[in-house]
Amino acid sequence: MSNFLTKSLLALTACSALLSSVAFAVPVTDVQEYANNTATEYFVDQDANKYNSPYYRGAQEDWGWNHAAIAGTFTSIVLDISAFDVDEFAPGWQGEIDMIYVFDGSSWLGMGNLDGANDIWAFTSIDLTSYSWAQAQVNAGLQVKMDIDLNQEGWYVTLGKATLTVDGGNQQCVPTPGVPCTPVSEPTSLGLLGLALATLGLGLRRRKAKIAA
């Protein structure tokens, strides 16, 4: 077998391995928002309704949502929640605490409070990568809920959307509701695969040219 054929087979083998790895690590962003609300979900449809019922909710109006199941094995898992009017601390008040919980397969685990500030939309980012249960729960469909105004001081909050992103995701989103997420460029691994195949094709053309000469 010629040296060129040997190198070509090695290149094809590497490409095949890369394809296999991509199949198990496809970047995905699952977006939960008004468009796919269920009867017990209250993501707001547009910014103009952020102060309106039933979206602007306080204590005793807690709710939650489920993300779509995402198959595969992941290197990163990040949950981003867009919230409006998470009030800052004020003298004489404990401050608004809207606690986020994620189901770990057996119980609800507190992941921290919503971030943000008065009268703005902002994402709260929760990195789930290091949790041993996260992969299985994402595969099954991650369940999330929140306890609004934990201290019952009269605070209210509206959610715009929640994005569950694995391996960098395939969509870019802004916190403002009603603004569609946009696709991101193809994963680097697929780009590298295309480059490898193009290089192999170039080598074959050059070899044919030499033989013809």
Rank of each mutant, 00 (worst) to 15 (best):
D115C: 02
D149G: 04
N118M: 06
S185W: 00
D85G: 03
G203F: 07
F84C: 04
L190G: 13
L193E: 02
W133L: 05
V31P: 10
A35E: 10
G105A: 07
T38A: 04
F84M: 04
V86N: 07
F74D: 00
N3F: 15
N118K: 05
G92K: 14
T6Y: 07
G95C: 03
N37E: 09
D45W: 02
P175D: 02
D45K: 12
Y131F: 13
N37Y: 13
Q172A: 14
A35D: 10
S82A: 13
Q172G: 12
G203C: 05
Q172Y: 15
T40I: 10
A48V: 11
D115P: 00
L190N: 12
N49Q: 04
R205E: 08
T13S: 15
W65C: 03
G191P: 11
S189A: 14
I148M: 05
A25G: 07
F4H: 09
P27K: 02
G169E: 04
A136T: 06
T38N: 07
D119H: 08
S21T: 11
T158Y: 10
V157K: 05
T29V: 03
Y156P: 02
K161H: 11
Q135N: 08
T6V: 09
G64I: 01
D85L: 02
A11Y: 11
L200H: 12
G95H: 02
V28I: 09
T199L: 15
G141R: 06
F84G: 01
P183F: 03
F89C: 08
L150H: 04
V166C: 01
T182Q: 04
A69I: 08
Y51E: 08
Y51K: 11
A90N: 10
I81Y: 12
W93C: 03
A71S: 13
F4G: 11
A90H: 06
I81Q: 10
K210D: 12
N66R: 07
D87N: 14
D80F: 01
A25K: 08
T75Q: 06
Q171P: 01
S76G: 04
K208C: 13
P91K: 06
L204A: 08
E41M: 11
